[in-house]
Design a protein around this nucleic acid. Structure first.
Lengths: 233, 233
DNA sequence: TTGCTTGGTTGATCTGAATCAAAGAGCGTT
DNA sequence: AACGCTCTTTGATTCAGATCAACCAAGCAA
């Protein structure tokens, strides 16, 4: 890697907080890599060979049953961490939903570096705890929420996570954004079929709560009503 | 705390690996506490004041929607860690499913100790990563599996987790065990109603796959068929 | 212009699990 | 042994979302 100090996610990824020398060592272990939309970086069940920071783009984390049913179990955004450190196999696949740019490390090398840099492990721990919280929130959605509640929750979550910039002064809830998911993928996140997703979105549009300028764009017309529908905890 | 060296989970909990002096310091921060079945230790949304190691017993981690719908998002067994370190609020409740014995720490004190003991944080990180894997596996269940598959998966999971002793030479898959959950709670783990749970269990019994000696006991008669029904990934 | 492809919508019908309703079964108390 | 309690099972009915089946719209190639 050329120069971590110029990295787009320098202050938001887990490498933030490392000093100049440490960054130099870590930088030698990693390499920048572009992946294209649809490309799978890690396959469920395969040896866990790489981990990475996301510099730019959105990826999905998914698990599936042998007959083809698939569930998206996580979404990874700019500055987030990808992969399964300290584990022989990856229990899930990681696939790019948009073109993306990553900072990739061999898992073994990263594990070794991490064990020697408590500050890095601490950041990774905090991130993992946050991810666990989000995942549990999603379990509540999958176990107990109705189709309408699920769609509303997803739109609000995307509005919020796509608006994150890492800069505390600049946390926006976007009112218009481009979904990094097609209808099938929305279904795979929410535990619904493509038809149900489509119907629910059409309903929200008919009710004037959202607008759908094109296949991928969503514009929130009435956030309050959307929040009511999401049946927040 | 009197003496960590005598602790039942000495070699399995996250404190394993600390040396004598460290253990003494940590021991002074913690206290043993018994909780009775049904008692709630941490309330969803409240300040995260305590964390703990489970010495003995089983607890549930749950989240709910304001109208009362509840989802169990995790189960905690002997030697597991409870609570939300490094966070102001706890996003979930923790409630004892059986009488239990805990080793409790104030969250703030534990956070401080952890930050100064990388080995402890490392153990906590590994545990959190494992818990995240299990949680994602459960998302697949909630999003995509049928009622039959869910019940079969739960029975196999309980058989395996109740059989864990921490001693690698002694990992058993129990063929008969006592469920720490009543029917309602099974429903709350699986995203099903109590009636569906009851019907599915009756069906498995009628098919000779399991036996139900009493309300809480389960005895697996044909593990292979149960595994087939679970539709493993 | 036509045809083809991919992704999305809409309608009709079906079904697995929820809901509604009523019995049982086990158990401690009097 | 009769009562009240909680938990569980079983049966009848309903319904949200799945499935099956057209159809539509945008992009693009020839």
């Amino acid at each position: 890697m050329k120069d971590c100090s110029q990295c787009l996610v320098r202050n938001r990824a887990i490498c933030a907080g490392l000093d100049h020398d440490e960054l130099e060592v870590l930088g030698k272990l990693g390499r920048k890599q572009k992946v294209t939309k649809g490309q799978t970086l890690v396959w469920e069940g395969d040896d866990s060979l790489v981990v990475a920071n996301v510099i730019e783009g959105v990826l999905k984390v998914s698990m599936s049953i042998s007959d083809g049913r698939e569930q998206i179990v996580g979404m990874v955004f700019s500055s987030d961490f990808i992969g399964r450190p300290f584990g022989q196999q990856s229990p899930y696949s990681v696939t790019a939903l948009t073109d993306a740019e990553l900072c990739i490390f061999s898992r073994a090398a990263f594990d070794g570096f991490a064990r020697q840099h408590p500050e890095l492990e601490h950041k990774l721990l905090r991130r993992t705890l946050d991810e666990l919280d989000r995942t549990r929130e999603w379990m509540l959605l999958l176990g107990k929420k109705t189709a309408t509640e699920r769609i509303a929750t997803l739109l609000l979550e995307m509005s919020s996570r796509l608006g994150e910039t890492g800069c505390a002064a600049n946390e926006t809830e976007l009112n218009e954004f481009e979904l990094p998911l097609d209808r099938q993928q929305i279904g795979d996140v929410l535990g619904l079929t493509i038809e149900t997703v489509s119907r629910q979105l059409s309903k929200l549009k008919a009710d004037g709560i959202i607008n759908l300028p094109d296949r991928r764009r969503v514009s929130i017309q009435n956030r309050q009503r959307l929040q009511n529908l999401a049946a927040a905890a």
